[in-house]
């Protein structure tokens, strides 16, 4: 057991702040060990202070915030591409995001406070791999992919496969998340977050739904949840029930029941697993009512 220390200082660090992606990838290639990638640091610093994250002395901090190549928001054939170090505020304020991906805007608008959103980056929010990350929840519903780059290599990983556990991802030690790609799709979406107070609070649970309709039936639906499992997850059993049909009182009931059964929430100081399970159903109900107006 570790002694109680109210707030720990940041340990001694070696600080490297490359201006280009090549430099950053070279750095990762050369020194695979003892590197901590830093962007906004809004998750890293509190974790160090509280003792949840122990940095070894003289750890190499790779600050990627100054890399211009990671700051783009563009909409093109492939879809919406957002650079990893775009801040959460920049996402919210972007006309491109507003017009092409309102779901993402809505989810990110509810992360932290304005001060946090002004400094935290979308890449950081994803790579931190919090089970409660609101951005990841919306990106799951949007079927986004992540571009992971290492020296001379690049691969695309569907966000659905990216998370491994709390704080754990498929990112290799020489890799950097460089951009998020959201495929171009037409559809309706909604995002609902439940916190304990009205503002600036971690999600007890959050839900994002993206739905596509064809001939008055649901042709595709993606439902993602935060804070109900070790990682943000898709509720694929529930999706299956809804695809190909209309929303009726009956299948709404089944969907609510199914979603409660397919998640595995934890107990913590913020909520019990029972409440989270219960709420996954209630938020799904609210989300579907929002979307279908029933």
């Amino acid at each position: 057991m570790r002694n109680f220390i109210g707030s720990r200082s940041i340990s001694k660090i070696s600080y490297f702040c490359p201006k280009s992606l090549t430099e950053a990838l070279d750095f990762l290639d050369n020194c695979k060990e003892n590197v901590k990638i830093l962007a906004g640091g809004t998750d890293v610093i509190p974790a160090v202070r509280s003792g949840k994250l122990l940095l070894i002395d003289n750890i190499n901090i790779l600050d990627i915030k100054s890399i211009d190549e990671l700051k783009h928001i563009v909409f093109e054939e492939e879809g919406l591409r957002i650079g990893a170090t775009v801040t959460l505020s920049e996402v919210i304020e972007s006309e491109i995001v507003k017009n092409n991906c309102p779901l993402l805007k809505k989810a990110i608008d509810q992360i932290g406070s304005m001060q946090i959103r002004n400094w935290a980056t979308i890449g950081g929010n994803i790579c931190n791999a919090s089970p409660a990350a609101d951005s990841a929840v919306s990106l799951l519903a949007l079927d986004a992919s992540l571009r992971l780059q290492s020296k001379g290599k690049s691969r695309l990983v569907p966000i659905n496969e990216f998370f491994v556990g709390p704080g754990k991802t498929k990112l290799k030690s020489d890799e950097l998340l460089t951009e998020i790609i959201i495929p171009k799709r037409n559809g309706n979406s909604t995002f609902i977050k439940l916190g304990r107070r009205n503002a600036f609070t971690l999600s007890l649970i959050s839900i994002a739904v993206f739905v596509q309709m064809k001939d008055n039936v649901i042709s595709d639906i993606k439902i993602a949840l935060g804070a109900v499992a070790p990682t943000p997850i898709r509720a694929q059993n529930t999706e299956k029930i809804l695809i190909g049909g209309k929303i009726t009182e009956e299948n709404l009931k089944t969907a609510v029941q199914t979603i409660k059964e397919e998640i595995n929430p934890i107990n913590d100081v913020r909520a019990s697993s029972e409440y989270r399970r219960d709420m996954s159903g209630e938020l799904l109900r609210k989300a579907l009512i929002n979307l279908f107006g029933i």
């Binding site: 304990r196 107070r197 009205n198 503002a199 971690l202």
Partner: peptide, 13 residues
Amino acid sequence: NSYSDYLIPTTLD
């Protein structure tokens, strides 16, 4: 043990 779990009211509350 921190303001993120000992919640005190914000402007929106």
